[in-house]
C-alpha cells in the first residue's frame, strides 16, 4: 500500500507516527498523582497529599497551548501578558538589533571583501571579537548604555554582526574576475559595479550569512531576556519557571522553536530567491 505513495507522503506519515509515539511515551511515563483518600497515613503525614510539581503530560500542554493561542494578545499587568505580546517584544528586539547589524556588516563586508588592505587591517579585530559569547557583553552594555532594553538590542547586534560581516567579505572577494571584467569593459562606475555585478554575484553567500545570523540572534534573545527581564519570550520562560508553571514553560519552549523555524524559513526563501546556477 505504501508503495503507491510519494516519498514526501511516506515521510509525512512517518513524522506523524513518530510524533504520536513520542507523545504517548511522554504521557504514559508521567506517574499519576494518587487521590488523597488512597494515601497511607505515613504518606499523608509527610505531605504526600499536597499536589507535587511534576513534568506535565502533553495533554496538559496542549490544553495550555489552546488556552494561550486563543487569546494571544491579552495584557493583564506586567507579569501576565499573552504569548503573542511576549513573542512580539522578542521579535522586535531581534529585528532591531539584526537590522542595525546588517546596516553595518554588509557595507563593511563589502569594504573588506574589495580591499585586501582593509581585510588585513580589520581581520585581527574580527577574530578576537567574534568568539566572544554575546552575553559576555551584557554587563558592559548595561553599564555604558544604562538601559536594559537597549542593552538587549545591543547584544543582538553584536552577535548577529559577525556571520554577516564574514560572509559578505567572503562572498565579495570571491566574485569571479570574469564578471568584474564584464563590468570593467562596460565602463561601469565602482558604485554601479557594486550594485549590478558584485551584489548579485555575492548575494547567495551574503544571505547565507544573514540566515546564520538570524538563527544566532533568536538563540541569544531568549538568554538575554532572561537577564534583562520585563518582557519577551525569554522573560516569559523564566517567569513561568519562577511560578513553577512547567506547562507554560514547555509551551513557550515550543513557541520559541516554532518562531525560530519561521524566521529561518523566511531567510531560506530569500536564499532561494537570490540563488543562481553557473
Amino acid at each position: 500500500m505504501l508503495d503507491n505513495l510519494s516519498q514526501n507522503q511516506r515521510a509525512a506519515i512517518l513524522s506523524v507516527v513518530l510524533l504520536l509515539v513520542g507523545l504517548l511515551i511522554w504521557e504514559a511515563s508521567i506517574p499519576a498523582q494518587k487521590a488523597v483518600g488512597e494515601l497511607t497515613e505515613y504518606e499523608r503525614l509527610t505531605g504526600g497529599g499536597v499536589p507535587k510539581a511534576g513534568v506535565p503530560p502533553p495533554s496538559q500542554v496542549l490544553v495550555k497551548a489552546w488556552e494561550q493561542l486563543s487569546n494571544p494578545f491579552y495584557d493583564a499587568g506586567p507579569n501576565d501578558k499573552g504569548i503573542g505580546i511576549q513573542i512580539g517584544y522578542s521579535i522586535y528586539r531581534v529585528l532591531t538589533g539584526y537590522i542595525l547589524a546588517a546596516l553595518v556588516a554588509v557595507p563593511l563586508g563589502f569594504l573588506i571583501g574589495m580591499s585586501p588592505v582593509a581585510h588585513k587591517a580589520l581581520n585581527p579585530f574580527i577574530q578576537v571579537l567574534r568568539p566572544i559569547s554575546p552575553l559576555a557583553w551584557m554587563p558592559l552594555a548595561l553599564f555604558i548604555i544604562q538601559d536594559s532594553e537597549a542593552s538587549a538590542i545591543f547584544v543582538i547586534f553584536i552577535c548577529s554582526i559577525w556571520p554577516m560581516l564574514i560572509n559578505t567579505a567572503f562572498g565579495v572577494s570571491g566574485v569571479r574576475q570574469d564578471w568584474v571584467n564584464v563590468a570593467r569593459t562596460h565602463e561601469l562606475s565602482p558604485l554601479k559595479t557594486a550594485i549590478t555585478v558584485i551584489l548579485p554575484a555575492a548575494a547567495p553567500t551574503i544571505v547565507t550569512g544573514m540566515r546564520i545570523s538570524i538563527g544566532i540572534a533568536w538563540l541569544v534573545i531568549v538568554a538575554a531576556e532572561m537577564l534583562v527581564g520585563g518582557t519577551g519570550i525569554g522573560y516569559y520562560v523564566w517567569n513561568e519557571w519562577n511560578n513553577l508553571d512547567l506547562t507554560s514553560v514547555i509551551f513557550s519552549i515550543l513557541m520559541i522553536g516554532i518562531v525560530g523555524m519561521l524566521l529561518d524559513a523566511a531567510f531560506g526563501a530569500l536564499q532561494r530567491a537570490v540563488a543562481f546556477a553557473e
Binding site: D178, N181, T185, E187, V197, A201, V274, F276
Partner: peptide, 19 residues
C-alpha cells in the same frame, strides 16, 4: 588606457552574468 565601451570583448568562457 583602461577598459572602454569602444572595445567590446567576447571571452572564451562567455562571461555571462548567471543571475
Amino acid at each position: 588606457s583602461g577598459p572602454s565601451l569602444d572595445r567590446g570583448v567576447v571571452f572564451q568562457n562567455y562571461s555571462l552574468l548567471p543571475w
